[in-house]
Computed example of a mutant assay.
Amino acid sequence: MLKNPVWAALAGPQACFAEAAGDAARYSPEIAPFAALRDPADPAAWRDLATITDVAVLTGPSITPPTGWETTEVLAGVQMIGQSMTGVDDPDAVVLTEADVPEMLELVARAQPGPFRKRTVDLGRHLGIRDDDGRLVAMAGERFRLPGWTEVSAVCTDPEFRGKGLGARLTLAVAAGILARGELPFLHTVHDNEDAIRLYGRLGFEHSGDVVFASFRRTATS
């Protein structure tokens, strides 16, 4: 399941966010750029994917497209799981809602945590920390939700406020909410972000496998 988390999410707890066809599914583009196949090695699943989109971002241990699709970008990443960690609530964290989306998008533009769109907040609980002037300066939230697991995502801090531990605090606070539901947290980060990998390790996350985030484009109508 964790080897194909987007499929497990879109075919399970987050089916309400899915545009699906046979053995393929994707999130609404306003929510996230990700799509998934029940079995990425099955050409029939790619044919199903072609009925709902001409471009797709998939994640998994390794993905090779069939004839009719080309790889346009591959980003190496790691998956980490919090199977034995303890979350910590943060008294300064505030729950972010749809009303906060403009500020969240501005923070994402400054901090560049990865894909975050105007309806990503719909996927789960997001928490933020504001400075003394009320400006949103750090946030973290939930993204992929599968049976028994929820991903911690969108962990980011305004460049002016880095080095204060805000990202770590919010990661632990989001994890605390996941654990309180009886689920386990997991997350992804890029392979060469050694600082983030070390930080998540100190917070109790353990490496569970290497993954790729790969973008594909359809090149044929068949």
Rank of each mutant, 00 (worst) to 15 (best):
L2K: 03
A8R: 09
A9L: 08
L10P: 03
G12T: 10
Q14K: 07
Q14N: 09
C16Q: 12
A20G: 00
G22C: 07
A25I: 06
R26Q: 12
I31A: 08
A32W: 04
D39I: 08
P40C: 07
A41L: 09
A41G: 11
A41E: 15
P43N: 11
A44W: 01
A44C: 02
D48E: 02
D48N: 14
A50S: 15
A50G: 13
T53A: 15
A56E: 06
V57G: 02
G60M: 02
S62A: 15
I63M: 05
T64F: 00
T67H: 10
T71C: 14
E73W: 05
E73N: 15
V78S: 03
G87P: 01
D90C: 14
P91F: 05
T97S: 14
T97M: 00
E98M: 09
P102G: 04
V108F: 01
A109K: 13
Q112R: 14
P113M: 12
R119K: 13
R119Q: 13
T120N: 07
G128P: 01
I129R: 07
G134N: 05
R135Y: 03
L136K: 07
L136S: 05
L136Q: 07
M139L: 06
A140T: 07
F144R: 09
T150I: 14
V152M: 09
A154G: 10
P159Q: 10
E160Y: 00
R162Y: 05
G167T: 10
L170P: 01
L172N: 00
A175K: 02
L179F: 02
F186T: 02
T189M: 10
V190Q: 11
D195T: 14
I197V: 15
L199S: 08
G201A: 09
L203I: 10
G204E: 10
E206S: 13
H207C: 03
F213P: 00
S215K: 13
R217F: 03
T219D: 06
S222P: 00
